[in-house]
Design a protein around this nucleic acid. Structure first.
Length: 704
DNA sequence: ATAGGGTTAG
């Protein structure tokens, strides 16, 4: 017998234009070069790897020389051959046709699937030689090394895996025993069992099997997964003594190990070494390095690595794009996220779940409400499920930008989804949603819904509710809710104190005393500072400033600006402009506020983005004083003066700073006018500013 | 899928 497939390439052939692969639906003869492995000597009978399947359906008739059934005619004998028609039992497939490879895959799949099934049985059986061997016995005698690799590679039970290894060692003539050890190491890695991996390594040496780079990278990544970076280093350093030169993958694993351990410096120095030693660094390694830069907050580092990669001619892959998108999201650079995402689509990549998750996180964090919602819709259209974290990210964004209706829809969708349930984060975002639009009873309903769902009230949801009552000027309910926090044994945190402080900025003067009591209980230091303001205590020199400075030093960097903004707002409400200036000055000294004023030869600017209204007015007051001083000193103003209020996506504010600020500028008769083409900018000319500042000064003189 | 590295967060 010659070939079981027929190449009809001769001009006289009935099918001159095509090469046909002769396929039989019962037996699947196939070209030799496609045979995945070569069991030698060739079995006379098909190897039964799947005990339950009929011989005729087995995939082991891969040997083209050995059709499994004598009844199967060879193509040359096939009476239908010349006509090109298939008989009932045969189909003709062009080998260049995708169908041919589909059929090949199908036949391989059943073998692979059977071996995977066996691996599944071994994962859940007792770790007894008797039980393990009995399952493996089903494979029959004619198992080959590759079968053993597939079985072990699909295992996850660290107790049965060594017995399986032993079985194969006994039954198969192994040419590459090291491979079997390496896949068994992978099982231990899956279970984060470094001690077992190390034991197996010793056993390997005892049997005289030489470890290779695969062995080491598997053990190193196991140590990484176990969060044992020192062990990872130890194994990495062992490599040369076993004659193993670390290669690209070894470096990649070590870079990741250092990165996960928080040792950014070592990770990056290895990356440097890999570069200077001219290792071919691939996209996987680059994405690891980008992730390390991203999690350590060096976002420009991410982009530099990305540029380096492109310069080296390495093509980005989907994971790399996902990592980069995630990093730019953390960096709060949604515009960069958009650019990179566009590039990714242009390069033909299809976004996956991780891509959408990165986009949602980026847009949510940056309060790009419309963009976040459209990502959400796209995910729903594609049938991609969101998890709790993603839903909560969306809902938090809705609360931030005031998307009430969207939040309600998303919450309904979340409740109807199978795999995820609202948690206390969800409810607290919803309470915030209602609190922002002043719907007190709806906010209370959400708290009750949360309790009905079996959650304990927590600091987050109660803080959101305090915010809600505060906005509605229900001071007694604020106090009641705050006391509830204390009664539950919860210690108020920085955010809840900040919330109380924010409520104070919206509360009439006569009710403030009720809230100072709460704040004193929550944070005595803050209580003392607030009391100095509310009681309008006259104190000497810099005592207030030093008290406030001590307070701001004692709290986390993430809430410092919020505290400072609230305290200044409180001052403005209480007509304590001097105190407000002291606080703003303190904020500048402590670098809570930076770059409020800037100067270029043609334009001086006041940047009020991220300042509260009170802080913005205080900054304006100081700026105008500074400008007056310039005139007094006989110096020149630039031709243009600008105030930037930002685009106004502020939490808990309907219009944003820009809207409110405009009316204040009018009140002050300040000649600034909103720029039609630059959102959030107010401009005036040197001439107008000069006359305004001079008239202001003469008023002051009159007042004095 | 068929011996080694990467994307899941608030």
């Amino acid at each position: 017998m010659t070939m079981a497939y027929n190449l009809c390439s001769s001009p006289s052939s009935p099918c001159p234009d095509h090469h046909f692969l002769f396929c039989n639906t019962l037996s699947a003869p196939r070209p030799l070069n496609l045979t995945p492995y070569h069991p030698l000597p060739k079995p006379k009978k098909p190897i039964s790897i799947s005990p339950h399947s009929k011989p005729s359906l087995q995939i082991t008739h891969v040997s083209t020389q050995n059709p499994p059934s004598a009844q199967t005619p060879s193509p040359n004998q096939n009476p239908d051959h010349k006509t090109g028609f298939s008989s009932k039992t045969h189909i003709w497939v062009n080998p260049k046709n995708p169908r041919a490879s589909q059929l090949r895959h199908k036949s391989q799949n059943s073998r692979y699937d059977s071996l995977v099934k066996v691996a599944g049985l071994l994962n859940s059986c007792n770790a007894l030689e008797k039980d393990v061997y009995s399952i493996l016995g089903e494979l029959g005698y004619k198992i080959v090394e590759q079968d053993a690799v597939i079985v072990l590679n699909n295992m996850s039970n660290p107790n049965t895996a060594p017995i399986v290894l032993k079985y194969f060692q006994e039954r198969i003539k192994l040419n590459k025993e090291g491979i079997l050890y390496n896949v068994t190491l992978k099982v231990f890695r899956k279970c984060k069992a470094l001690d077992r991996a190390e034991k197996l390594f010793d056993e390997m040496l005892e049997r005289g099997i030489r470890p290779d780079n695969v062995t080491f990278s598997t053990i190193i990544s196991c140590a990484r997964l176990c969060s044992l970076p020192k062990k990872a280093v130890e194994w990495f350093e062992k490599m040369p003594s076993f004659g193993c030169e670390p290669d690209g993958v070894s470096f990649a694993v070590m870079i990741d190990a250092y990165g996960r351990a928080g040792n950014v410096e070592m990770a990056l120095s290895l990356y440097d070494r890999a570069r200077t030693e001219n290792w071919r660094i691939d996209a996987v390694t680059f994405s690891t390095v980008i992730r390390i830069y991203g999690t350590s907050g060096n976002f420009d580092g991410c982009l530099n690595v990305y540029e380096e990669m492109k310069a080296l001619g390495v093509k980005p892959n989907l994971v790399l794009y996902n990592t980069l998108l995630d990093a730019m999201g953390r960096a709060k650079r949604p515009w960069q996220v958009k650019t990179i995402y566009k590039e990714m689509l242009n390069n033909g990549f299809t976004p996956g779940w991780a891509t959408y998750a990165a986009l949602l996180r980026a847009y949510g964090k940056a309060r790009y409400g419309e963009d976040a919602i459209s990502v959400y819709r796209e995910m729903k259209e594609k049938g991609l499920e969101l998890n709790v974290v993603l839903y909560n990210t969306l809902l938090a964004m809705c609360a931030d930008v005031g998307f009430t209706d969207e939040a309600i829809d998303i919450f309904e969708d979340m409740k109807s989804s199978e795999n995820c349930k609202p948690d206390s984060w969800t409810f607290s975002s919803l309470v915030t949603v209602y609190s922002c639009c002043g719907k007190v009873s709806e906010a209370e309903d959400k708290l009750n819904e949360m309790l009905d769902a079996g959650f304990e009230p927590d600091i987050y949801v109660l803080t959101s509710l305090i915010q809600c009552y505060g906005k509605a000027n229900r001071t007694d309910d604020v106090v009641r809710t705050f006391n509830r926090i204390l009664e539950l044994g919860i210690t108020p945190d920085e955010r809840s104190c900040c919330c109380l402080l924010n409520v104070m900025t919206q509360t009439p003067r006569e009710e403030l005393v009720k809230l100072t009591g709460c704040i004193e209980k929550a944070n005595p230091k803050l209580g003392a500072v607030v009391k100095l303001l509310v009681e309008e205590t006259n104190i000497e020199g810099d005592i207030f400033k030093s008290e406030a400075g001590e307070l701001l030093d004692s709290i986390g960097a993430d809430v410092r600006k919020a505290y400072c903004n609230c305290l200044i707002d409180l001052c403005i409400n209480l007509n304590l402009l001097e105190r407000a200036c002291e606080l703003l000055d303190l904020g500048l000294t402590l670098e809570i506020y930076t770059d409020i004023q800037s100067k270029s030869p043609i334009q001086w600017s006041l940047h009020l983005k991220s300042l509260s209204l009170g802080a913005a007015l205080t900054a304006l007051h100081i700026w105008t004083n500074d400008l007056s001083k310039v005139l007094e000193d006989g110096e020149e103003l630039p031709s243009l003066l600008g105030i930037n209020t930002g685009h106004g996506k502020h939490k808990y504010s309907d219009k944003g700073l820009a809207g409110v600020f405009e009316s204040h500028l009018k009140e002050l008769n300040a000649p600034f006018h909103e720029a039609p083409d630059k959102v959030g900018w107010f401009f005036t000319t040197k001439v107008a500013a000069k006359s305004w500042l001079e008239s202001r000064r003469s008023h002051e003189v009159v007042a004095a």
